[in-house]
Design a protein around this nucleic acid. Structure first.
Lengths: 255, 255
DNA sequence: CGTGTCCTTGAGGTCCCTCAAAGGCGGTGG
DNA sequence: CCACCGCCTTTGAGGGACCTCAAGGACACG
């Protein structure tokens, strides 16, 4: 499950994360180095394997390098809610590690490789790698922003809008880290996963997807979603990519 | 709108925040001092006055000292989704300030006083006040945890459970910062606010509250919610306070 | 005493759920 | 190479949770 990365691997390691950060501000060498320092330990997980389970203490902070990871809560009545999905370049458990134990399952949806590091006191971490604070805080803010947007979706958008919205979001996120260049997205989520992500039933997900397909907006099949008309889809969703904040800012660089 | 706090005020300023942090770990003098240093500027807002509006650039990071603040999104079709509420001791806009502009309205629900400070580069901030990083990161984690729980509620709990759950959460949050000691909560939210917070219609909120009242669980009136049977309410909600992480940890103190 | 704000109740409709069942498709084993 | 199995998708039918529209009542305030 664990192996030593070669220097070559380290070189190429967090290109996903770097691409995201680069979109946000001029990525400095210090930040790249700090992240490189931190990400020396790697691990692999098979599909369906949990990285951490509800109720367990946190052992690591993860940076996803390959594959998809779902953060989900299992409710007593047997239902599940997927809170968010992590794709390459996303951190997992960063701020939550402050807490004693996890409130959620973190489970590999595909074969997954991660970089990971043991949580140390934040204050030590930032003292050791001051430039890391920027990257981590940005990642935090980004994740919280997506969570807030999910709350908006679940609270005030209907099934069609929710589905359209999450597809727009995934398209944008995958594009910025270079997971896709055209409108064909390799998304390993089943219709049941979408149901648990969007707070609806599997059956209604299916009908919604068929309806979007009939309208020539998207074409879903297992493991692959093709966006036929992004503009129109975004209009259906009320999707405004602003909340992802993938826009350059130069005024807040560390001095 | 702005005034200089007297030293006495500073002394008493963030008791709310301190109580929360104290619940989490032994609050050190350094942290208290760092926060005190930062919170020299205060501001007051009237009820309904926005602290910041959707689309505006961030000017400040806020620490709520008195009153209630709602973070809400207004959708094109005229609906509103309240993403979370901030009570005394809560930060607002902390990590979001990294972004160019706000995705949400931040509006005073009651007369509000806040401490505020201008965002500087995170790296500078943490270098200046290293002990602050802990408090801020914990606050971040806490807020994200509540957001995640809201996603679970909106996605997989029905109206009755959602209402019960949010009341349990508010009770717990108000108790830990000392806003209440018994089961009578001064909550300034109207039924419409609850509707927008829980993603339901005003009318259904009303029926749900009446139903909870009929079951002798809670008694709602304007500005005040009385919890008649917390245990039972928590059972209805499927509420487990774990996600609030108001439990002592001594193992991760900064050295 | 009118006006604004908020709560309350009724009635009808709809979005989405649950239950039920069938079909496609890749993998595995006999 | 076919039969079978597991996993996922698809479709139908009926029901329920919640929504919208409509209207009335309570209460505070100037």
């Amino acid at each position: 499950m664990t192996e030593d990365p070669s220097p070559r691997q380290l070189q190429r390691m967090s290109q996903y994360l770097f691409r995201k950060l680069r979109g946000f501000y001029g990525l400095t060498d210090e930040i790249e180095e700090a992240i490189g320092e931190l990400c020396k330990d790697t691990a692999e997980f098979a599909a369906r394997e949990p990285l951490i389970e509800q109720g367990e203490p946190y052992k690591y902070i993860y940076l996803v390098e390959k594959g998809w990871v779902l953060r989900a809560r299992h409710l007593p009545q047997g239902t599940r809610q997927v809170v968010n999905v992590a794709v390459p370049g996303d951190f997992a458990c960063f701020n939550a590690h402050l807490f004693g134990m996890s409130d959620f399952d973190l489970v590999a949806k595909t074969p997954v490789s991660v970089f990971r590091f043991e949580p140390v006191a934040i204050i030590d971490l930032f003292a050791l790698y001051p430039h890391l604070a920027v990257a981590l805080t940005w990642s935090n803010a980004h994740e919280e922003s997506m969570l807030a947007e999910r709350v908006v979706s679940l609270g005030r958008r209907n099934a069609r809008e929710r589905m359209a919205h999450v597809l727009c979001e995934l398209a944008a996120r995958m594009r910025i880290v270079g997971m896709t260049t055209d409108n064909v997205l390799s998304i390993p989520l089943t219709q049941e996963d979408f149901a648990d992500l969007l707070g609806m039933s599997l059956i209604h997900v299916n009908r919604t997807l068929r309806s979007l397909a009939a309208a020539q907006l998207v074409h879903y099949k297992v493991g692959q979603v093709q966006i036929l008309d992004f503009e129109k889809l975004a209009r259906v969703a009320g999707f405004d990519s602003g909340y992802l904040h993938f826009t350059q800012r130069t005024d807040i660089l560390p001095r």
